[in-house]
């Protein structure tokens, strides 16, 4: 998943707040995933319109790290999720 890829959640997968446990979860058929704080900020920006690079731009303004590091980490995270079928790249 490179900077130009546009990630989205496929049908049946959604990011949801689990208020009872005070956390967010990605719910997929038969499976669930719990993002850490930074991963949650990434997933909240996955809308099927923003590219990986666009997400990196937004987060680089909020986090204290070089933009290229942020983009590389985001791409790696989303690639891992894509292998699990939790996101797809458009």
């Amino acid at each position: 998943m490179d900077g130009a890829a546009v990630p989205r959640f496929p049908r049946g997968v959604r990011l949801r707040e689990d208020a009872a446990r005070g956390r967010w979860v990605v719910l997929a058929p038969e499976r669930a995933f719990v993002p850490d704080d930074v991963a949650l900020e990434v997933l909240k920006l996955v809308d099927g319109e923003r590219s990986v690079g666009g997400i990196a731009d937004l987060l680089a303004a909020r986090f204290d790290a070089p933009r290229e590091v942020i983009e590389a980490d985001i791409a790696e995270m989303l690639r891992d999720l894509a292998e699990r079928g939790v996101v797809v790249a458009g």
């Binding site: 995933f33 850490d36 991963a39 204290d64 790290a65 980490d73 995270m77």
Partner: peptide, 14 residues
């Protein structure tokens, strides 16, 4: 805010 490599953990629904 500090950037920490983002991670997503799979949890067992069971």
């Amino acid at each position: 805010m500090a950037w920490i490599k983002p991670r997503v953990a799979e949890v067992s629904l069971a």
